[in-house]
């Protein structure tokens, strides 16, 4: 409404800001870049064929030959982890991209047009919200069979309403701001204002939130493979690796399960730190 009072200004300075957050951010970006490069150039980096079975070398500990040991079939865990990064990263990337595009379009439509379109879309989102994304993915498998294609499409649809609702809320609050009225008074057309001015003000915030979705999607898709419903053996995938290694746990063979588990955790932490830092930098709303 009006300029911040001095007390408000002081209060804003009190807002918690993680010190050294920026350096965590840099480290996280580094981790993601390394993981992505490893995934893309897996055939050149991995020391072994990830599916090369060597029954004379099962459950080996770390050694110069196998840095991270071998699994129950004597396959090199490091190589499988590097190849596993491909499905682990590609799936969430596709889901985040699809759901963001779909969500922004629907959110813009609902928020800018309002009226019955808004009501119908709102009701539709409510219904989709009732289906947790993992459940939709499991249903997709039940319908179309195992693999990643159906779950990725299903989860794109499951996540789109989250993006759409945030976009809609931001668009609605932007639309009521005087700067939009000012554009109208100057004679600009509604679509021009929506697409060229309001949407660019809103997308950074939506983008930062979508980044945070990446971690959840990665965990859920890996979980699906862990359940044996996603990526199928023998393809290397972090979730599937943990699934296969589970049998060895009771025998005390932790490494084949721990390695992909740590990989999952590291990537999710990195993505979440990046997402939170981005949200922080952009702030909770459009800067006034």
């Amino acid at each position: 409404m009006s300029a911040p009072t001095p007390t408000m200004a002081v209060r804003m300075m009190r807002a918690p800001r993680l010190k050294r957050a920026a350096s965590w951010y840099t480290v996280s970006l580094g981790v993601l870049v390394v993981m992505t490069l490893a995934a893309v150039f897996a055939p050149f980096i991995a020391p072994y064929d990830p599916n090369f079975v060597n029954l004379s070398a099962v459950y080996q500990g770390p050694s110069p030959a196998h840095w991270l040991g071998t699994d129950s079939l004597g396959r090199d865990t490091l190589s499988r982890m590097i190849f596993g990064a491909r499905t682990a990263l590609l799936g969430p990337l596709l889901v985040v991209v699809f759901s963001t595009i779909l969500g922004i379009l629907l959110g813009l439509l609902a928020g800018w047009r309002g009226g019955w379109i808004d009501s119908v879309l709102g009701r539709l989102f409510d219904v989709i919200f009732a289906f947790p994304s993992l459940l939709i993915a499991i249903m997709a498998v039940a319908l179309f069979g195992k693999g990643l294609v159906a779950p990725v499409i299903a989860m794109s649809i499951a996540y789109a309403p989250f993006v759409a609702r945030l976009t809609r809320q931001l668009i609605v609050s932007e639309r009521s701001r005087p700067y939009v009225a000012a554009y109208r008074v100057q004679g600009f057309s509604g679509p021009w204002i929506a697409l060229r001015r309001v949407l660019p003000n809103v997308t950074p915030i939506v983008g930062a939130q979508s980044t945070l979705n990446f971690g959840y999607v990665l965990a859920e898709l890996a979980g699906l493979s862990f359940l044996g419903l996603g990526v199928q053996a023998p393809t290397a995938d972090w979730g599937a690796m943990i699934n296969e290694a589970q049998a060895g746990l009771t025998g005390g063979y932790f490494l084949p399960a721990i390695v992909p588990a740590v990989a999952v955790v590291i990537v999710v932490v990195a993505v979440n730190i990046i997402g939170e830092e981005l949200s922080d930098r952009i702030g909770g709303g459009v800067p006034a």
């Binding site: 300029a3 005087p178 700067y179 009225a181 003000n201 006034a288």
Partner: peptide
Amino acid sequence: MVFQDPYLSLDPR
């Protein structure tokens, strides 16, 4: 028209 709130009537970007 010139609007009331100068903090909101200019496009922040």
